[in-house]
């Protein structure tokens, strides 16, 4: 039997290239989770806003693509920090911090995702916008064409992860962030400006999600509904890799990407999205801490 290895390589490549996008969004989700103990259900819409910001900066205002990417990240970070400050912060005013706000945060997240999606709809309409970026001719790997956007995304994913790692482990500000993540009350006592750290965590996570949106724009076009399906895949990625683990997020994304592509290729093409969910549920049932994660402890 002559197994089609070149196709297998193609499927794996597709899985990895889309998986890193899931991973970048999962990076933000994991960061919020490890810092604030909440799962941000509106993160998909931040990703979508990032894509639209990138489109506006790059096409309407004419900035070059890398500049548009950075500007979009900054704008999304500001948006995220604003939302956190105005809405999410109030949920914790009742005392107990973010953990106890629990179900309220989840519901607020759902509500916020609807609000954000509809604000985007009111601004930009329902139409899907193409986001063409001229990066040159695509790579040719054997008989597979790989547009440069995919390669760029993978590079940026690794860069973001490394930058985040460096920031958290090697800088003083990162130390403050980690302290806040570990125990907010003690961090207060140590003189750390906890509210500002919380805003910073949120801003970073949202900026990262926006980067994913801008990077994926050329491959998939930009539409106000793009956030929701990405959210579910990114959650799957974060869970598989381990909530709270940064390399886990990227690794988890790649695993999810490969799983869904191999499933579609070899099991059944109709159920492509279900493979990601199955993986999510399996991991949650068998090893909720995921590949790299630490067992979730209740943090105040």
């Amino acid at each position: 039997m002559d197994f089609d290895f070149s196709s297998l390589f193609a499927f794996l490549l597709f899985g990895v290239t889309i998986g890193v996008v899931y991973g970048i969004v999962a990076l933000g989700i994991s960061l919020i989770y490890s810092g604030l103990d909440i799962v941000h259900f509106a993160h998909g819409e931040i990703y979508m806003f990032g894509a639209f910001f990138g489109l506006v900066f790059s096409h309407t205002m004419g900035f070059p693509y890398p500049v548009a990417l950075l500007l979009a990240m900054v704008c999304a970070a500001v948006l995220g920090m604003g939302i956190e400050r105005v809405f999410y912060r109030r949920l914790t005013k009742g005392g107990g911090g973010y953990t106890v706000a629990g179900m309220g945060m989840i519901i607020c997240g759902f509500g916020m995702s609807i609000v954000l999606m509809n604000i985007a709809f009111l601004i930009w309409g329902a139409a899907a916008e193409p986001f063409p970026v001229d990066l040159g001719m695509p790579f040719q790997l054997g008989d597979i064409t790989l547009p440069k956007s995919y390669a760029l995304t993978a590079v940026v994913a690794v860069l973001l992860m490394a930058a985040l790692h460096y920031f958290l482990k090697k800088t003083k500000l990162g130390l403050a962030v980690r302290a806040v993540a570990a125990n907010k009350d003690i961090a207060y006592l140590m003189g750390i400006n906890v509210p500002m750290m919380i805003s910073l965590i949120f801003g970073l996570a949202c900026g990262i999600a926006a980067a994913a949106g801008v990077l994926i724009g050329p491959m998939q076009s930009v539409q106000v509904e793009m956030g929701y399906l990405m959210l579910l895949k990114a959650f799957a990625a974060a869970v598989v890799g381990g909530f709270g683990s940064l390399p886990g997020a990227i690794a988890g994304g790649i695993v999810v990407g490969i799983a869904e592509n191999l499933g579609a290729a070899y099991i059944s093409p109709n159920h492509k999205d279900i493979y990601a969910f199955l993986l999510l549920i399996l991991v949650l049932m068998i090893k909720p801490s995921g590949l790299f994660g630490i067992v979730a402890r209740v943090k105040a």
Partner: peptide, 17 residues
């Protein structure tokens, strides 16, 4: 086995599936 947001994700996945 799961609580809070983990459970939310699992049930979300099941519902969508």
């Amino acid at each position: 086995r799961l609580e809070g947001a983990y459970l939310a994700l699992a049930t979300l996945g099941l519902g969508e599936s």
